Amino acid sequence: MPIYKMAVGNPGEASHPDAIRAALAEFFSMVIFVFAGQGSGMAFSKLNDNGTTPSSGVIAASLAHAFGLIVAVSVGANISGGHVNPAVTFGAFIGGHITLLRAILYWIGQLLGSVVACFLLQFATGGMGVSAFALSPGVTSWNALVFEIVMTFGLVYTVYATAVDPKKGNLGIIAPIAIGLIVGANILAGGPFDGASMNPAVTFGPAVVSWTWTNHWVYWLGPFAGAAIAAIVYDHIFISDEDYSHQPLPTTDY
């Protein structure tokens, strides 16, 4: 099974032009995604002074993240696979679809992209504060951990089904749309409890800019655990060695 094909990679891969371009694609996709998603939250905070209800803020965040992710995944798909999420990259590594060295390059690009997007938002809004992810009152770190595991499981499972599975056929734009919609739906479900990150990079940027690290570990452990579970489950149950031997993944996929 591909799950046993995890690889560290060749040291020369870290400096290969294709790998560098892929990392840059992840960087720019993350800037696009975080600027739209985090910006929607900042816009809601500004509008809140005019009586905007909290529920409308969750809906706005859901739509902004869904639309932003659809675009971010689409523009990076042909270059890096359009991960736009360290947890998705980790899930791809667990399934043997990307080497560890290439994953590290992706993680660097994704984290830097998030930080740059948050600094750009802070500058563009005239110094408005960028809020770090936080737990709602009454929600413990363990509650949030379960939320992040389950939501990220759904996200990475969707990625595997629509973008990784060799049997997926020519889904085209369906994959980015499905990935964006599951993130938007999860924000509606988990947003009021822990912000519904599902993406360590999305959490990292605001944490750096605001220098707020309370319960930050939840937004790494949860998504990485959920991604690993989804990769193992989908790989073992729905993908066989024959699938790969008959329909190998294109070199541009993950």
Results as ranks from 00 to 15, higher is better:
Gly76Ala: 14
Phe90Asn: 07
Ser74Asn: 09
Val88Met: 06
Arg102Gln: 06
Ser80Tyr: 13
Leu101Glu: 00
Leu101Gly: 00
Gly82Arg: 08
Leu63Ile: 15
Ala92Val: 11
Val75Arg: 11
Ala60Lys: 12
Ala92Asp: 05
His65Ile: 01
Gly76Ser: 02
Gly82Tyr: 07
Ala77Thr: 14
Leu63Ser: 04
Leu100Asn: 02
Gly76Leu: 09
Thr99Met: 06
Gly68Trp: 04
Ala61Asp: 08
Ile79Leu: 15
Val73Pro: 07
Ala66Met: 06
Ala61Lys: 05
Gly76Arg: 07
Ala64Ile: 05
Val88Glu: 05
Gly76Glu: 01
Arg102Asn: 10
Pro86Phe: 14
Ala61Tyr: 01
Ile59Tyr: 06
Val84Asn: 07
Ala92His: 07
Ala66Ser: 13
Phe67Lys: 00
Ala61Val: 03
His65Cys: 02
Phe67Ala: 01
Val84Arg: 08
Phe90Arg: 08
Gly82Val: 12
Leu101Met: 12
Val73His: 04
Leu100Asp: 01
Ala92Ser: 13
Gly91Trp: 09
Val75Ala: 13
Ser80Pro: 02
His65Thr: 09
Val58Ile: 15
Ala92Phe: 13
Ala92Arg: 04
His97Trp: 12
Ala60Ser: 15
Gly81Tyr: 06
Asn85Ile: 09
Ala92Trp: 03
Asn85Cys: 11
Ala77Phe: 14
Leu69Cys: 01
Gly76Phe: 01
Ala60Arg: 13
Ala87Ser: 11
Ser62Gln: 00
Ala60Met: 14
Leu101Arg: 14
Gly76Asp: 00
Leu63Cys: 13
Ile94Ser: 08
Gly76Tyr: 03
Thr89Leu: 09
Asn78Lys: 15
Ser74Cys: 08
Gly82Phe: 10
Gly76Cys: 11
Thr89His: 06
Leu101His: 01
Ala72Cys: 06
Val75Thr: 11
Ile98Glu: 05
Val88Asn: 07
Ala87Ile: 05
Val75Ser: 10
Ala72Asp: 01
Leu63Gly: 02
Asn85Glu: 03
Gly91Ile: 13
Pro86Thr: 06
Gly95Tyr: 04
Ile70Gly: 09
Ala60Gln: 15
His83Thr: 03
Ser74Lys: 14
Pro86Ala: 09
Val73Lys: 09
Phe93Ser: 10
Ser62Ile: 03
Ser62Val: 00
Asn85Ala: 11
Ile70Trp: 04
Ala87Gly: 12
Val88Ala: 09
Val58Asp: 02
Thr99Glu: 03
Leu69Asp: 00
Ala87Leu: 13
Val58Pro: 03
Ile94Pro: 10
Val84Tyr: 11
Ala77Gln: 10
Ile94Thr: 12
Val73Gly: 07
Arg102Glu: 08
Gly95Asp: 07
Thr89Met: 06
Ile79Ser: 12
Ala60Leu: 14
Val88Trp: 03
